[in-house]
Design a protein around this nucleic acid. Structure first.
Length: 217
DNA sequence: TACCAGGAGAAAA
DNA sequence: TTTTCTCATGGT
């Protein structure tokens, strides 16, 4: 593995090209958390529909979600796909969130303790937990997703079969632990994968010529 | 028509 | 322990 580019340089190129991404698109930390669950393997445009349904029914609070009928909740979540399983996962998360005292209490925990709590919820895996830690709680945690794995393995900065924790450690060990930069970096990776990689097979950012196709590799 | 999307957990091997 | 299957809507 002989990368021709560093983690810092990839960030610099992406930021220079796309600018600030203003993530996570949400009005409150709790909305970030709901979005993180609903976006599991799902296009964001579909998540927005489901969140709007919750808002229109005045149910974008943990208490309202827990007190709603499961059938109603499933109906509101329907546009985001996997609505039956997401109904369960969202309620599991809300139950934990309420039991733990919600934002104020949870904000007092250190990052590892908070992460452990999130991962104890059935339906919250490592990526969803890290989305919540970074974008709802402002903790300097690097989020690894399928785009990150694909792009950075093609840049020879990581190997494609590395597990989640190993990848996360690699990013966090090669970058300064700054919430603002981690926030932008993950968002930029998603933007680049969605926008440039699909539309421009000769992406000028890299490097990234190697990451710009779904079919190869 | 087939593939992909800001994954996770259960079941099977 | 590792791999495979299931969950499902909407855009391209």
């Amino acid at each position: 593995m002989t990368p021709g580019i560093s983690f810092d340089e990839v960030y610099n190129r992406l930021y220079k090209h796309y600018g600030p991404q203003h993530w996570w698109p949400a009005d409150t930390p709790f909305e970030v958390m709901v979005g993180a669950v609903l976006t599991q393997n799902t296009a964001w445009t579909n998540v927005v529909r489901a969140i709007n349904n919750l808002k229109q029914n005045e149910c974008l609070t943990p208490e309202r979600i827990l007190n709603s009928r499961a059938s109603s909740l499933a109906e509101w979540l329907q546009p985001s796909g996997y609505f039956n399983i997401k109904t369960k996962r969202l309620r599991n998360f809300c139950q934990w969130y309420v039991d733990e005292g919600q934002l104020k209490s949870l904000s007092q925990l250190d990052t590892e303790e908070l992460r452990k709590g999130l991962l104890s919820v059935n339906g919250i895996g490592p990526e969803t937990a890290d989305d919540i830690l970074l974008y709802a709680f402002g903790r300097p945690v690097f989020v690894i997703d399928a785009y990150t794995r694909r792009i950075f393995s093609r840049l020879d900065l990581v190997s494609a079969d590395e597990n989640y924790e190993s990848l996360r450690a690699k990013f966090e060990n090669n970058l300064l632990a700054e919430t603002g930069m981690f926030n932008e970096y993950h968002a930029l990776i998603v933007t680049h994968a969605k926008e440039a990689c699909k539309k421009n097979p000769n992406c000028s950012l890299c490097c990234l010529q190697a990451c710009c196709s779904y079919s190869e590799g």
